[in-house]
Design a protein around this nucleic acid. Structure first.
Lengths: 132, 132
DNA sequence: AAAATTGTATTAAAACATTGATACAAATTG
DNA sequence: CAATTTGTATCAATGTTTTAATACAATTTT
């Protein structure tokens, strides 16, 4: 579990957000699976040369989002249980994200057809990654 | 052009961003068309009970993004000309947005099929809006 | 050409966010 | 049951962002 994450202190993106993003991506892509344990806050903090609070913040926000599950004394794990939100709420959330993509795309003068092509390509890329 | 935009000072989202978002959405959906004039900075600032700088910031950032076009003394208009970025760069940008949607979706345990259904629905909704 | 209309620039105050130092608390291990 | 391992809480310092006050500059109107 070492060398999995990499933080750039000068990227302009807060380090706790960089870490959150990398964990989310690892979980979504299947590199981290349900019940996998993440490195202890202090260990990862040392590895990333960052304050333990920074790692703790990433972990606890991901716990609030239902992606991780932390227990004092035991550790932090990838959450395999039920999603926090009801089906409908989850779909509402994704719809609003998709609408944002569509707004950006049309403002970039990308056509519906081009968009569809990109969508299919990316979705397939992720689905392949998941099967492994 | 009155009553088109609405700002909530206590939403937690900066007001200039709320305004940007609303303008982008209006342009993407065809409610604002190329060459349409936006309200003058001061006029909109009064209507939204906000400092003129706040409106000016939204306008100028949208100009940087190639969505609006402002001329001192004349006004601010929806930009109909060529996109700022090359085809390839625009596609890269959208790909990365789509990847973010996919990461969120998989973390919300939304399946590829459900996702595709939502995608099609939203894309059609926007395409209909544009035809009008 | 003066007045009005419009966007732009500068600067400062206030609000907010990020990171770090340090201490606390629960569970596990020996 | 003491020591260790792990997450959590509090608080302060620093940095960044947002908003506002005010003045400037270009174009259009009268």
């Amino acid at each position: 579990m070492k060398n999995w994450f990499y933080l750039n202190p000068r990227s302009g993106i807060p380090m706790y957000l960089q870490l959150k993003e990398q964990i989310k991506t690892a979980v979504a892509g299947g590199a981290l699976r349900p019940r996998d344990q993440l490195p202890p806050v202090r260990e990862l903090a040392v590895a990333l040369t960052v304050n333990p609070n920074t790692v703790a913040r990433a972990y606890s926000e991901l716990e609030r989002e239902g992606i991780l599950s932390a227990e004092q004394g035991r550790g932090t794990f990838v959450n395999g249980g039920e999603p926090l939100l009801r089906e409908e709420e989850r779909q509402v959330q994704i719809k609003s994200l998709i609408d944002k993509v569509l707004v950006e795309a049309f403002n970039l003068r990308i056509t519906g057809d081009q968009l569809n092509a990109i969508w299919e390509e990316r979705l397939k890329a992720w689905e392949n990654r998941l099967q492994r």
